[in-house]
Amino acid sequence: MKAPPVSISCQGLTLRFPVYGVDAKSLKKHLAKITVGGKLGRSHGSTEVTALSNLNMELKAGDRLGLVGHNGSGKTTLLRALSGAYEPDEGAIEVKGRIAPLLDLNLGIDPSATGYENIRLRGRIAGLSAKEVDARMDEIAAFTGLGPFLAMPVKTYSAGMQARLAFAAATSVEADVLLMDEWIAVGDAEFQQLAHKRLLKLVERAGILVLASHDLDLLRLYCNKVMRMEGGVASPVTDIRKLDELMAA
């Protein structure tokens, strides 16, 4: 079976956040000078933060893009825009391929429901049909290593067990475009290794990876391209080998 072409294309992508219910008038002058965060502006009575401005990028199958930048430089916003949650104010985003946003592992996790129910729910949210979830259930259950605990409510789990469940459920869907906010490392040492392997496999299968991280060594390890973001403005997509020059610039 030939895979359809996978690609991401952003043209002149601009994203402004209206901030409601906050009177940032007095704060505005201060914040505008700080490098952390986007630019603040004011329109229609609500404060606006320009989270991304005029971002252009083209990614094709095989690209592993690392995003670097300060807190609030727009990395997560870009990931969310790529997931389809945020609509651009200007420009366009086009993504071809199945998208798997692994931004928040706890998405859709209901603490009062059992492990099995949560796996099912998470699978359904990710776009699997009930049958597909059932077909994968054994594999996912085995991966969590939680055994009989899967039949118990998630609120009885320890934080580590919860993380195992969330990770196993979230990574059970194969996708063409993988979006990650920080490399996911959960559980104890043994599970971390398992998780690491699984994630690598997922990345290998996916056509495109976009990974936001502050850990430069990590980016060097997993990415072949890098983009630096600052105050919502992105550098051109450059080769990972030029990371040092990019950071120095």
Binding site: P88, E90, V95, A126, G127, V173
Partner: peptide, 13 residues
Amino acid sequence: METATHMLRTGRR
């Protein structure tokens, strides 16, 4: 299978 196989998001038109 996944949420979207083709996604296009654009500014106001």
